[in-house]
Structure formats: structure tokens, C-alpha cells
Design a protein around this nucleic acid. Sequence first.
DNA 1: ATGGCTTATTGTATAAGA
Length: 255
Amino acid sequence: MKIATWNVNSLTVRLPHVLDWLASAKPDALCLQETKQEDGKFPYDALREAGYHAIHNGQKTYNGVAIISPHAIESVSTNIAGFEDEQRRVISATVNGIRLVCAYIPNGQAVGSDKYQYKLQWLNAFTSWLKQELQQYPRLAVLGDYNIAPHDIDCHDPQAWQGQVLVSEAERAAFQQLLSLGLHDGFRLFNQDSGQYSWWDYRMAAFRRNLGMRIDHILVSDSLKPHCQQSYIDKSPRKLERPSDHTPVVLELAA
DNA sequence: ATGGCTTATTGTATAAGA
């Protein structure tokens, strides 16, 4: 079972990259964030022709999340139960007996801003909700763009970024709260190196210089952890023409 | 040097991302 997450920064623009990546990587499930389109514009037909089922929770211009799989996608739910939110940031479903939560966690813009407060409130609601989801679905993975670099080694310049959004103490504490539910950073089960990033700014030739952040993560539950076999960041789509600023993160589990 | 680039919008500049 190969699962992956990718913030595509507009599926309208990135559909060719997604179809190419599906064909070469052959994931059992791919979670997308920032599709930036309403459900009526989602490319169900193109994906079906490529052999994939898909579910989408979208909106115009911003946000939007999807799960794509060649297998049956069951027990679909959207958003965070009990949390009023106009923004389409969560979709969940069961594939091959594994509960997949696809999440686009708010960016937060700047520490102390209204959007930062929203991010922290959102994370609080998300964590409370996931605690219940884990009881119902012990075999669970949370895949997405967390907009949090959990540790200094996940940031190319921790000194310059100290206290800023994506790395602030409150955001990192919220990430640790998620882990305290019995979740584990899938990538770090296999790789302890610094310089391992999933996002690079479009500006400053950041990708070429590897000035990035590791903010896209796959968290796995206690029950799934023993089945994890490998995890890696696939930088190849970031090298294409007109890439997303994020690149896929992959986790492989024993069948 | 607080910018640089990319996307979407009913645009011809602005907002947002991270």
C-alpha cells in the first residue's frame, strides 16, 4: 500500500503533472491539497480514464482537497465534524481498510494575525476531532500540507525563521499535540537527515539552492506504524515546467 | 534590499500563498 500527499497549487494548472505522476508512481492513494476549484470543475473524467476513482471537497479560488485511488473509496466524510468552517480543507475516506484523512492546514500568514489565530483554533478542533476518529478507525493516516516545519532541521535557515509562521512555538506545540494522540511522523521513521524539504519558494531560485521547508507530512497511527516500510520525498515533479511549489511525500506500508 | 514567483479573479491591480 503506497500512499502519498501533494499540494498541487491549482489542479486546473497541475492536472498533467498529476496524471503523469500517477502513471509513474502508481500510488494506491494520492491526497491532494489546494485544488482551488469547485466540485463541478474537478477532473473526474480524466482521472476515470486513467483508471482512478476520486473524491473531492472543493471551493473556488482557495483550498480544496481530494483523494484519488485505483481502489474503492469508501465511507467518505468532509470537513471537521462540529467545527464551523467555510473553508474546504479536509476530506476523509477508507481505502484498503486504512482510514485516510487528507488535510490542508491553514497557512497562518503571520504570527499574531487573524489568520494565525484561525490556524491555531483550526488545529485545536482538528486534534479533538482526530482523537475520536482514531477510536473509530485505529488504522489511520493523516496526510497533507500541515504548514508546520516540526523541528529546526525541517527548515533551511532556522535562525532567519525563528519565531516566524510555520515554525513558531505555538504551531510546533500544536503539531506535538497531534503526535500525542498516538500518531507518528512517517518520514522520520526512516530518515533523520537535515535538508529534506517538501516545499520551496518560487522566488530566489529556492529549489535549485535547496532553500526549503518540510511542511507536508504523513502521520500514521500506532496501529499502522509497525507496517510502515519506507517513506520519501519525490522531488521529480518540482523539476518540471510550471511546477507546484510543493512536491509529493510518499509512504509505503506492508500490504 | 522584507523583495524575488505563481495563481485566481470578471483583473488591467490585488490578495494569498509560505
